[in-house]
Design a protein around this nucleic acid. Sequence first.
DNA 1: GGATCTTGGTCACGATCTACGATGTGGCGA
DNA 2: TCGCCACATCGTAGATCGTGACCAAGATCC
Lengths: 336, 336
Amino acid sequence: MVTIYDVANKAGVGMKTVSRVLNDEAHVRPAMRARVLQAIEELGYRPNLAARQLAANRSFLISFIMNDVTSSYQTSMLVAASAECRRRNYHLVVEIMEPDESATGLVERVMANLRPDGIMLVPPLSNDADLIQAIANRGTKLVRVAATLQGYGHVVPVRDTEVSQKLVAHLLASGKKRIALIAPPYAKAAAHERVTGYKLALAAAELPLESDYIVQGDFTFASGKSATERLLGLPQPPDAIFAANDAMALGAMAVLQQRGIGIPEDMAVAGFDDSPGSRTVYPPLTTVRQPISGMARDAIAKLLGGPVDQEPLVPELIIRGSTQVGFVETVIAQDK
Amino acid sequence: MVTIYDVANKAGVGMKTVSRVLNDEAHVRPAMRARVLQAIEELGYRPNLAARQLAANRSFLISFIMNDVTSSYQTSMLVAASAECRRRNYHLVVEIMEPDESATGLVERVMANLRPDGIMLVPPLSNDADLIQAIANRGTKLVRVAATLQGYGHVVPVRDTEVSQKLVAHLLASGKKRIALIAPPYAKAAAHERVTGYKLALAAAELPLESDYIVQGDFTFASGKSATERLLGLPQPPDAIFAANDAMALGAMAVLQQRGIGIPEDMAVAGFDDSPGSRTVYPPLTTVRQPISGMARDAIAKLLGGPVDQEPLVPELIIRGSTQVGFVETVIAQDK
DNA sequence: GGATCTTGGTCACGATCTACGATGTGGCGA
DNA sequence: TCGCCACATCGTAGATCGTGACCAAGATCC
C-alpha cells in the first residue's frame, strides 16, 4: 500500500507538504504543488479514507434518509444527490427508516456508527418534527428538501403553486368546467402549495370553489380510487380530476377505466410527480416534473458549502394524453 | 468523546479486554464480559468507526452498485440488503453506474476511495463481464444476484423456470390457446429461464412452438408496445401475451387499450417483477414476485459469512385482473 | 510439572490537526 | 550596506482512534 510518505519521498518534499496539496491548503508554491501532484500520479497514490476520517474528524459521508423506496420522488432524489456527492468526493449512505422505527432510534443508529458529515432529508421526512429535533440535538448538519416546516437545518424550497395553477388553467382551457381536487393529507405540508395553485386557478377563472369537489386523499393508489368513487357519486360529477400526486391519479384512472368512462373525453385526469407509472399507463398521465437534479445539487451545496443556484428552480408541466385528446406521444418514447 | 480507554477504566480492566468483548473474541470470562458491557452501557460508548477501519483494515461498508433507480427490482433489492446490513452493523453505500461510465473507472472510483469490504451486484450488472473482471482484478469480495454468467464471486441463483411454466399453464387453464412471448434481450442472460418455462409449459400441453409468437424485446415500455403491434399484425394474432418483465407487459397493455381490445377477454397479459406499475394499472397485471428479501439476505450472508437459507428461494405467481375475469382485488388494496 | 485459559501491554496502522520551529524573501529605514 | 520586521514557505512532533500481531505473566486445570 502506497502511503503519503512514499509520495513525499518520491517528490522530495516533506509529508506535511503533500498533505497541504491534498487538502488544497494555501502556502504551497505552484512548482512544488505540481511536483507533488506528479508523484501522486506516478505512484497511483490514494489517500486512506479511514485515516483521513480519524485525523480530520470528518467522515466524507452524507446520510440520505428515506422511508419509501417505491417512491420515485425519493429514489430520483437519491440518484441526483449521489451524482452530486461523487463530484465532491463524498459518498452517500442510504438509511431506510422502518415504519415502526423511532426518530431518536434512527438518529442514534446512524450517527453513532457512521458519524456522517451531514444528513439529507426528503419528503415526507423533511417535515418530520421528531426526526428534525433528534438531529438538532446532535448538532449534525442537515438539509431538508421541499420542507415547509420551519426549524433546524437548511431548506431547499419548493415552488409548486405556480405550476399547479398552470395545470388547472390547462384543464380549463381544454374545455373542462368542473375540476375536482384529490387533496394531499394534512400531514404532508410540503404538498399544500398544490392546493393553493388549484384555488388560484379557479379564482382567476372566476369559478366558485365547490367544497364537494375537494376530496382528501393520503397519497396512496387506494385513496385515489375511493376519492374518485366518491366524486362519481355526486349529483353532478366533475369533468376533470387533479390529484396531488401520481399514485392517486392512477387510482382515479383505474376506477374510470373499470366503469368505462372515457379519458380524457368524459373525465380528464392529472397527477403530480412524473412517476414511472405515469408514463406507462394508457393514456399517459399529464403530470408535473420536479427539477430533481437541481434541487439535489442545491441540497448538497447547502450542506457542504459551495455555490447554490441563484435562479429559482421551477417544476415543469408535462401534458400528456390523460388531459389532451389526440396527444402525440413521441416525447414519451424517448423517456426511457 | 468517550473512548475505549474510558470504558476500560470504568470497568477496571485493560483496554485490550474491552476490545476483545467488542469483537466477540474468545478468552474472556462471562463475569468480566458482563462488567465491560455494563460500563459500555453506562458511558454510552460507541466505538469510532474510522479507528476500527484503520486498525482492522476493513471498512464495515458494502457497495451496492446499480444502474437504474427506476427499476423496482433494483430498489427493492437495495432496501432488503440495507435492512440486512443493519442487522450486522454494516452499512450500504449506493453507487450509481452512469450510462457512459466504464467498468474499470467505476471500480477504481469506488474501491480507491471507499475500500468496501464487499460489492453487491444486481441484474443486469451481475452479468456484466467487464465489471466482474475489474472487481476480480482488485480481489474485492463480490456477490452477484440472479447471475447466470459463471465467474468471479458468489452467486445467488434465480429459479424462474418453474414459476414461468406455472404462469403459462395458468393462461392455458383459463382457456387461452395461442400464447405469445415477448422475450428478454439476448444480453440479459438472467431472464432466459423465463423463456425456458414458457417453452416447457407449451410442451407439457402438447402445443406447437410458433416462432411468430416469440418477439424479442429489450425490457423497455416502448419495446413492449412495438412487439405487441407486431403480434397484432399477424394473420392469426395470439389471445394471450406473456412479457418477460412488467415494463414490456405495460407497453402491451397500453397498445391493447389504445385499440380497444379487451383485457383479459380478448387478450390476456402477464408480466414479471411485481413492479409498482403492475399494481396501479387497470386491470391490475398478473405477474411474478421474486423472493427479494430472502435473496438479499442470502447475498449479504455469502459476502460476510453466516447461515444461508437452505430451502431454495422460489418466486411467487401473482394472479390479477389482466388474466382473470372477475378478479377480486382485495389483495391489491393492502399492497399499498 | 505441563498444558491451557485469561488478562494486560506494546507497537504499528495512516492522514490530519495543532503548534511550533526553521528557513527564505522582500521591504523599509537608517 | 546593514539591521530589523513581516510574511510566505516548508518541516517536525505529538496526539488522535481501535484493532491485530505478538509477547508475557499469572491463573487454573489435569
